[in-house]
Design a protein around this nucleic acid. Structure first.
Lengths: 261, 261
DNA sequence: TCACTGTCGATTGTCTACAATAGGCTATCA
DNA sequence: TGATAGCCTATTGTAGACAATCGACAGTGA
């Protein structure tokens, strides 16, 4: 290890990755600083410390994370791949901007991916009862715990997305899962604008119940019930008023908004 | 510009990007060496000069491309994002390996994305006749030209994928398009194993006709006809014998293979 | 007042150098 | 002969330095 790179490097020993899937294969592959930087930067975004369309200056991140520019740049490349940040050659990196149309794209794509996952699950599974839902149930338990006992808004969001990721993972197609994980980054970006509003929409126990219902529907054996549950699931999460505050609506996004009144 | 970095740098003036979409917004934003490196490396893979599971050594690429390691590393990060290469920390980068199950995942995901795009197109379009198919038709013309006049196998593949990308772009959701472009990289990787076999499966004019039919079905106004056309489209492209040569079949992939006999 | 042009600081792009690691090879021992 | 430990080399990870570029600002002219 080098003399510098302390801040992040110190964490390498006992990390809890925000993306738990990374370490799933090999027992010990501590990530490179670049990957750690990517996680840290994404957390800055999700926590709202850096907002949509904000300029991200590499050196600022360096001093903040305690590493040199090389890993920071690579970390930004990683985040670029999932669309969390956008780079314009020689003009730097910005957090992705979120117009109303962007949110529309993100949420509909996410819904589409979940439905695709369920479709594949049913298409390639003889008997739904054989599906191993261990991880999904574990995620549901963690989610319930987080919502009922914890009070960290950020932790709740993470638990919620962990559950949805496990849901998608049921389909067994790792490419679908990767793609879902990427778009999830962007969903979290949307949420970062909307953290406080979450609690006003529904109570914690309502939220847990909603996820429990989703699990039941997906594993019910009835594809259409599963698909409907997915398309219904997201509707309350984003209050209409929030979306209306965003600029950059298009004909399509307006139409989509109207449809859910 | 630096003294070194000649090889790639020289190209920056008159580039034809393999991914034409990149330069779509700003008139002149010449890509960085990292992005050029990513394109070049991916071409090495698609042309079969580097095959699945091959180790990719950064310095070898440096001497080959005439740049230093920094842009090469960033280029590899970009490719990593689309799953073309896989990195194990401190153990280097490899081209993604292709088991039978991988090909199964890739092709079903691709099919799913195309269907999702069409579903969205129909869901958010009042009258299909209003859809602007200019780019799609242009891609079809280029495809026909490539197949009827050209004889560069690589060029044909590119034209074919350009057409499919335009097809997906009709849905108007840039996130879906990005995701599709990523998985296309992996489809091309599959094709790189199979370049010669393509011509044995169908004649050039058959291929063009098949794409023309696909266009017609997608714009027919009948969603189900469009979806069926998509799921039927890929079937002949990969001959069963090829897939059987691959190791790493799973129950699912076998079932999937059997279904298309 | 407005448009244009040149300059300057901040920032990105790239290169080189060095430290740390992985994986193969040899020597040693049983 | 076979397994194991230890070195050695090739390669990756990271840092730091420099060149090129962008964007803001002030100055110039109309």
């Amino acid at each position: 290890m080098h003399v510098t790179g302390e801040a992040l490097a110190r964490e390498r020993s006992g990390i809890e990755m925000t993306t738990p899937s990374l370490a799933r294969d090999s027992l010990i592959d501590s990530p490179s600083l670049a990957e750690l930087a990517a996680v840290k930067i994404s957390e800055l975004v999700f926590r709202g410390e850096i907002g949509p369309d904000d300029r991200v200056v590499e050196e600022h991140l360096c001093s903040r994370l305690g590493v040199s520019r090389a890993p920071v740049r690579e970390g930004l490349r990683i985040l670029e791949g999932s669309g969390l940040v956008v780079r314009r050659p020689r003009a730097g990196v910005r957090v992705a901007s979120l117009s109303q149309n962007d949110v529309f794209e993100i949420l509909t794509f996410r819904e589409g991916l979940e439905q695709m996952a369920v479709t594949h699950l049913y298409r390639f599974t003889d008997d739904i009862a054989d599906v191993d839902a261990t991880e999904l149930d574990a995620a549901l338990v963690r989610l319930a715990d987080e919502f009922e006992n914890g009070d960290d808004e950020f932790g709740r969001i993470q638990a919620s997305y962990a559950f949805h990721t496990e849901l998608v993972r049921l389909c067994g197609n790792s490419r679908i899962v990767s793609s879902y994980r990427q778009i999830t980054m962007q969903v979290k970006l949307c949420m970062s604008l909307n953290l406080r509003r979450l609690n006003t929409v529904e109570t914690p126990s309502e939220n847990v119940a909603r996820h429990r219902d989703l699990r039941a529907a997906v594993l019910s054996g009835d594809v259409n019930r599963a698909l409907d549950a997915i398309s219904g699931h997201g509707h309350d999460t984003f209050a209409r008023e929030f979306l209306d505050t965003l600029p950059g609506g298009t004909e399509r996004s307006a139409q989509w908004l109207d449809a859910r009144d």
